[in-house]
Amino acid sequence: MFAKLLLVGAALLPGVALAGHAEEDWPEPIKEYYTGQVLFDRLEISRTDEEKNAAVWDMMAWYGGDYHRVVFKSEGENIQDDGKPTHLESAELMYGYLVSAFWSLQVGIGTRGELSSDSSMENYAVVSFMGLAPYWFEMDNSLMLNEEGDVQFVSETEYEWQLTQTSYLQPRVELTANLTESEEYQRQSGFSNLRVGLRYRHEFSREFAPYIGVYWNSALGNTADRLEHMDQDTTETGWVIGARVWF
Protein backbone atom coordinates (compact mmCIF):
# COMPACT_ATOMS: atom_id res chain seq x y z
CA MET A 1 0.00 0.00 0.00
CA PHE A 2 2.79 2.38 0.90
CA ALA A 3 4.55 1.58 -2.36
CA LYS A 4 1.42 2.44 -4.32
CA LEU A 5 1.20 5.81 -2.58
CA LEU A 6 4.82 6.52 -3.47
CA LEU A 7 4.14 5.72 -7.12
CA VAL A 8 1.09 8.04 -7.18
CA GLY A 9 3.09 10.83 -5.55
CA ALA A 10 5.92 10.40 -8.00
CA ALA A 11 3.50 10.60 -10.88
CA LEU A 12 2.01 13.86 -9.55
CA LEU A 13 5.30 15.60 -8.78
CA PRO A 14 6.16 16.62 -12.38
CA GLY A 15 2.74 18.25 -12.79
CA VAL A 16 3.11 20.12 -9.49
CA ALA A 17 6.55 21.30 -10.46
CA LEU A 18 5.38 22.53 -13.87
CA ALA A 19 2.37 24.33 -12.31
CA GLY A 20 4.68 26.19 -9.97
CA HIS A 21 6.77 27.58 -12.84
CA ALA A 22 4.01 29.15 -14.99
CA GLU A 23 5.25 32.22 -16.85
CA GLU A 24 3.54 35.57 -16.22
CA ASP A 25 3.07 36.25 -19.94
CA TRP A 26 1.32 32.94 -20.65
CA PRO A 27 -2.23 33.41 -22.02
CA GLU A 28 -5.26 32.94 -19.79
CA PRO A 29 -7.09 29.60 -20.13
CA ILE A 30 -10.32 31.42 -21.09
CA LYS A 31 -10.12 34.71 -22.96
CA GLU A 32 -12.58 37.51 -22.17
CA TYR A 33 -15.34 37.91 -24.72
CA TYR A 34 -18.41 40.12 -25.19
CA THR A 35 -21.98 39.02 -25.72
CA GLY A 36 -25.50 40.33 -25.18
CA GLN A 37 -29.17 39.53 -24.71
CA VAL A 38 -32.59 41.09 -25.23
CA LEU A 39 -35.19 39.79 -22.75
CA PHE A 40 -38.91 40.59 -22.64
CA ASP A 41 -39.78 39.29 -19.18
CA ARG A 42 -43.36 40.53 -19.61
CA LEU A 43 -44.97 40.97 -23.02
CA GLU A 44 -48.67 40.70 -22.30
CA ILE A 45 -52.27 41.78 -22.59
CA SER A 46 -54.05 42.47 -19.30
CA ARG A 47 -57.74 42.85 -18.52
CA THR A 48 -58.87 44.63 -15.36
CA ASP A 49 -61.92 44.07 -13.18
CA GLU A 50 -63.38 47.19 -14.86
CA GLU A 51 -63.10 45.45 -18.26
CA LYS A 52 -60.22 47.61 -19.49
CA ASN A 53 -57.58 46.05 -21.75
CA ALA A 54 -53.95 47.09 -21.73
CA ALA A 55 -50.83 46.07 -23.66
CA VAL A 56 -47.84 45.84 -21.30
CA TRP A 57 -44.12 45.38 -21.83
CA ASP A 58 -41.20 44.92 -19.45
CA MET A 59 -37.83 44.37 -21.11
CA MET A 60 -34.08 44.51 -20.53
CA ALA A 61 -31.21 44.42 -23.01
CA TRP A 62 -27.50 44.25 -22.22
CA TYR A 63 -24.15 43.91 -23.94
CA GLY A 64 -20.68 43.44 -22.48
CA GLY A 65 -18.44 41.04 -20.61
CA ASP A 66 -18.50 39.41 -17.20
CA TYR A 67 -17.87 42.60 -15.21
CA HIS A 68 -18.71 45.58 -17.42
CA ARG A 69 -21.96 45.93 -19.36
CA VAL A 70 -24.19 48.47 -21.07
CA VAL A 71 -27.78 47.94 -19.91
CA PHE A 72 -31.09 49.24 -21.27
CA LYS A 73 -34.39 48.75 -19.41
CA SER A 74 -37.90 49.77 -20.41
CA GLU A 75 -41.44 49.33 -19.03
CA GLY A 76 -44.76 50.73 -20.14
CA GLU A 77 -48.38 50.14 -21.07
CA ASN A 78 -51.05 51.28 -23.46
CA ILE A 79 -54.68 51.12 -22.29
CA GLN A 80 -56.83 50.29 -25.28
CA ASP A 81 -59.57 52.65 -26.50
CA ASP A 82 -59.15 55.25 -23.73
CA GLY A 83 -58.05 58.06 -26.04
CA LYS A 84 -54.76 58.50 -24.18
CA PRO A 85 -51.21 57.94 -25.46
CA THR A 86 -48.94 55.12 -24.39
CA HIS A 87 -47.58 55.53 -20.87
CA LEU A 88 -43.82 54.99 -20.63
CA GLU A 89 -43.14 53.92 -17.04
CA SER A 90 -39.37 53.93 -17.56
CA ALA A 91 -36.67 53.92 -20.22
CA GLU A 92 -33.19 53.70 -18.70
CA LEU A 93 -29.68 53.52 -20.16
CA MET A 94 -27.11 52.40 -17.61
CA TYR A 95 -23.60 51.13 -17.02
CA GLY A 96 -23.52 47.89 -15.04
CA TYR A 97 -20.66 46.50 -12.98
CA LEU A 98 -20.62 43.04 -11.39
CA VAL A 99 -19.80 43.65 -7.72
CA SER A 100 -20.15 40.00 -6.61
CA ALA A 101 -21.03 36.61 -8.05
CA PHE A 102 -24.77 37.34 -7.97
CA TRP A 103 -25.15 41.15 -7.81
CA SER A 104 -24.69 43.98 -10.29
CA LEU A 105 -24.57 47.72 -9.59
CA GLN A 106 -26.08 49.83 -12.38
CA VAL A 107 -25.85 53.61 -12.77
CA GLY A 108 -27.38 55.73 -15.51
CA ILE A 109 -30.14 58.05 -16.71
CA GLY A 110 -33.81 57.53 -17.54
CA THR A 111 -37.01 59.14 -18.71
CA ARG A 112 -40.74 58.49 -18.31
CA GLY A 113 -44.12 60.00 -19.11
CA GLU A 114 -46.82 60.04 -21.77
CA LEU A 115 -45.60 59.39 -25.31
CA SER A 116 -47.24 62.32 -27.05
CA SER A 117 -45.94 65.43 -28.77
CA ASP A 118 -47.42 67.85 -26.20
CA SER A 119 -46.32 66.03 -23.02
CA SER A 120 -43.32 66.89 -20.86
CA MET A 121 -41.14 63.89 -20.03
CA GLU A 122 -39.67 63.42 -16.57
CA ASN A 123 -35.91 62.89 -16.73
CA TYR A 124 -33.98 61.37 -13.86
CA ALA A 125 -30.75 59.74 -12.69
CA VAL A 126 -31.01 56.15 -11.48
CA VAL A 127 -28.97 53.74 -9.38
CA SER A 128 -30.00 50.07 -9.38
CA PHE A 129 -28.83 47.09 -7.36
CA MET A 130 -29.88 43.98 -9.25
CA GLY A 131 -29.22 40.34 -8.52
CA LEU A 132 -30.08 37.06 -6.86
CA ALA A 133 -30.88 37.15 -3.14
CA PRO A 134 -30.59 34.11 -0.82
CA TYR A 135 -33.13 31.35 -1.55
CA TRP A 136 -33.11 32.37 -5.27
CA PHE A 137 -35.20 35.52 -5.11
CA GLU A 138 -34.52 37.76 -8.13
CA MET A 139 -34.46 41.43 -7.10
CA ASP A 140 -34.13 44.77 -8.86
CA ASN A 141 -33.97 47.76 -6.47
CA SER A 142 -33.83 51.22 -8.04
CA LEU A 143 -33.41 54.70 -6.58
CA MET A 144 -34.36 57.59 -8.88
CA LEU A 145 -33.65 61.33 -8.59
CA ASN A 146 -35.31 63.68 -11.09
CA GLU A 147 -34.36 67.19 -12.19
CA GLU A 148 -36.53 68.79 -9.48
CA GLY A 149 -34.86 66.80 -6.70
CA ASP A 150 -37.76 64.35 -6.22
CA VAL A 151 -36.63 60.91 -5.03
CA GLN A 152 -38.43 57.63 -5.62
CA PHE A 153 -37.57 54.02 -4.73
CA VAL A 154 -38.89 50.98 -6.61
CA SER A 155 -38.27 47.37 -5.56
CA GLU A 156 -39.20 44.40 -7.78
CA THR A 157 -38.93 40.82 -6.50
CA GLU A 158 -39.61 37.60 -8.40
CA TYR A 159 -39.29 33.92 -7.57
CA GLU A 160 -39.41 30.97 -9.97
CA TRP A 161 -40.91 27.76 -8.59
CA GLN A 162 -40.08 25.00 -11.05
CA LEU A 163 -43.02 22.59 -11.39
CA THR A 164 -41.63 20.44 -14.20
CA GLN A 165 -38.68 20.60 -16.58
CA THR A 166 -40.55 23.12 -18.74
CA SER A 167 -43.16 24.81 -16.52
CA TYR A 168 -42.84 27.41 -13.75
CA LEU A 169 -45.00 29.23 -11.25
CA GLN A 170 -43.71 32.77 -10.75
CA PRO A 171 -44.93 35.12 -7.99
CA ARG A 172 -43.96 38.77 -8.41
CA VAL A 173 -44.08 41.74 -6.00
CA GLU A 174 -43.42 45.40 -6.88
CA LEU A 175 -43.32 48.08 -4.17
CA THR A 176 -43.04 51.81 -4.87
CA ALA A 177 -42.15 54.48 -2.30
CA ASN A 178 -41.82 58.25 -2.78
CA LEU A 179 -39.12 59.63 -0.52
CA THR A 180 -40.26 63.17 -1.33
CA GLU A 181 -43.55 64.74 -2.40
CA SER A 182 -43.96 66.06 -5.94
CA GLU A 183 -46.79 68.44 -6.85
CA GLU A 184 -45.73 68.61 -10.49
CA TYR A 185 -45.99 64.86 -11.00
CA GLN A 186 -48.81 64.36 -8.45
CA ARG A 187 -46.86 62.00 -6.21
CA GLN A 188 -47.50 61.82 -2.47
CA SER A 189 -44.71 61.05 0.00
CA GLY A 190 -44.45 57.62 1.61
CA PHE A 191 -45.27 54.14 0.31
CA SER A 192 -47.47 54.73 -2.73
CA ASN A 193 -48.17 51.48 -4.55
CA LEU A 194 -48.04 47.70 -4.12
CA ARG A 195 -48.54 45.24 -6.99
CA VAL A 196 -48.66 41.46 -6.48
CA GLY A 197 -48.89 39.00 -9.35
CA LEU A 198 -48.74 35.28 -10.06
CA ARG A 199 -47.95 33.71 -13.44
CA TYR A 200 -47.88 30.16 -14.75
CA ARG A 201 -45.33 29.81 -17.58
CA HIS A 202 -44.64 26.93 -19.94
CA GLU A 203 -41.49 26.84 -22.08
CA PHE A 204 -41.95 25.58 -25.62
CA SER A 205 -38.27 26.50 -25.92
CA ARG A 206 -35.78 28.41 -23.77
CA GLU A 207 -36.41 31.47 -25.93
CA PHE A 208 -40.22 31.39 -25.99
CA ALA A 209 -42.48 30.73 -23.00
CA PRO A 210 -46.18 31.78 -22.99
CA TYR A 211 -47.90 32.37 -19.67
CA ILE A 212 -51.17 33.23 -17.98
CA GLY A 213 -51.58 34.96 -14.65
CA VAL A 214 -53.45 37.21 -12.26
CA TYR A 215 -52.51 40.37 -10.36
CA TRP A 216 -53.69 42.68 -7.59
CA ASN A 217 -52.69 46.34 -7.42
CA SER A 218 -53.29 48.76 -4.54
CA ALA A 219 -52.47 52.36 -3.73
CA LEU A 220 -50.96 52.92 -0.28
CA GLY A 221 -50.73 55.65 2.35
CA ASN A 222 -51.09 59.25 1.25
CA THR A 223 -51.55 58.19 -2.37
CA ALA A 224 -54.57 56.09 -1.46
CA ASP A 225 -56.01 58.95 0.61
CA ARG A 226 -55.68 61.32 -2.34
CA LEU A 227 -57.40 58.90 -4.72
CA GLU A 228 -60.26 58.36 -2.26
CA HIS A 229 -60.66 62.13 -1.94
CA MET A 230 -60.99 62.29 -5.74
CA ASP A 231 -63.55 59.41 -5.72
CA GLN A 232 -61.17 57.13 -7.61
CA ASP A 233 -60.51 53.43 -7.01
CA THR A 234 -57.51 52.53 -4.87
CA THR A 235 -57.34 48.84 -5.82
CA GLU A 236 -57.40 46.89 -9.06
CA THR A 237 -57.42 43.21 -9.95
CA GLY A 238 -57.10 41.51 -13.30
CA TRP A 239 -55.68 38.69 -15.36
CA VAL A 240 -52.92 38.62 -17.98
CA ILE A 241 -51.89 36.51 -20.94
CA GLY A 242 -48.53 36.90 -22.62
CA ALA A 243 -45.12 35.44 -23.32
CA ARG A 244 -41.57 35.62 -22.01
CA VAL A 245 -39.23 36.02 -24.99
CA TRP A 246 -35.49 36.43 -25.29
CA PHE A 247 -32.88 36.35 -28.03
Rank of each mutant, 00 (worst) to 15 (best):
M1C: 10
A3Q: 10
K4D: 10
L7M: 14
A10C: 12
A10F: 14
G15T: 13
G15L: 06
L18D: 11
A19W: 00
P27Q: 04
E28L: 15
E28A: 15
P29Q: 01
I30P: 04
K31T: 13
Y33V: 11
T35P: 07
Q37R: 13
R42V: 05
L43I: 01
E44T: 05
E44I: 01
E44F: 00
S46V: 15
T48N: 15
W57Y: 14
M59W: 11
M60N: 11
M60Y: 05
D66I: 11
D66Y: 08
K73T: 07
K73P: 02
K73V: 02
E75W: 07
G76P: 08
E77P: 05
N78V: 13
N78P: 03
I79E: 15
Q80Y: 11
D81K: 14
E89T: 14
S90T: 14
M94G: 08
G96W: 09
Q106C: 03
G108K: 09
G110T: 02
T111V: 04
L115Y: 05
S117M: 02
D118K: 10
M121W: 11
V126C: 09
S128H: 05
P134G: 13
Y135D: 07
Y135H: 04
W136P: 05
E138H: 02
E138S: 12
D140Q: 01
G149N: 06
G149L: 05
E158G: 09
Y159S: 06
T164G: 03
T166M: 12
S167W: 00
L169W: 00
E181G: 11
Q186Y: 14
Q188C: 03
S189I: 03
G190C: 01
N193H: 08
R195W: 04
L198P: 07
H202I: 01
E203S: 13
E207S: 10
F208W: 07
A209V: 00
Y211A: 12
Y211L: 09
Y215R: 01
T223N: 14
E228D: 09
D233F: 08
T237S: 15
V240I: 09
G242M: 02
